[in-house]
Amino acid sequence: MNINFWLNGVCINCEAEPDMILLDLLREKGCYSVKRGCETSNCGLCTVLMDGTPVLSCSILAVRAEGHKITTLEGMQKEAEEFGSFLADEGADQCGFCNPGFLMNVFAMLQELKDPSEEDILEYLAGNLCRCTGFAGQTRSILKFLQYKKEQKEADNA
């Protein structure tokens, strides 16, 4: 089937079989940041944004991307470097395999939740598994990033 969608701001026109999974199409289109960690929608590694909403690209038919805006980490490199630096400064990037899906959901959370508590953060990101860090370093990096953003904003206002 022929489909049209926006991938990281670029309009894509391509062919996709009816049962093709979005995750596979995205990798085919060079978005290698999108990873598969399970087949049961449990790991969160394949998280991408669909019209700004975080979704599991392993659970979406490629044809359902028709007319939607899909964003992967390839389309958010600047944000990735900015937040990623905080993650790296905790040593919490570790093997890195879960990082892209984790970052995408962090970005979605920052859009959706204003001033999230630590508990809110843990609940919002619960669908992003990580086996290396025990999560503590990831949480530290988010809290420090939020603080940095807050200070940045205050400085801008002043």
Binding site: Y32, S33, A80, E81, G84, D89
Partner: peptide, 12 residues
């Protein structure tokens, strides 16, 4: 920081 960090966090 880990030497490979930026490649990992930006999904290379």
């Amino acid at each position: 920081r880990k030497s490979d960090s930026m490649a990992l966090v930006t999904g290379k």
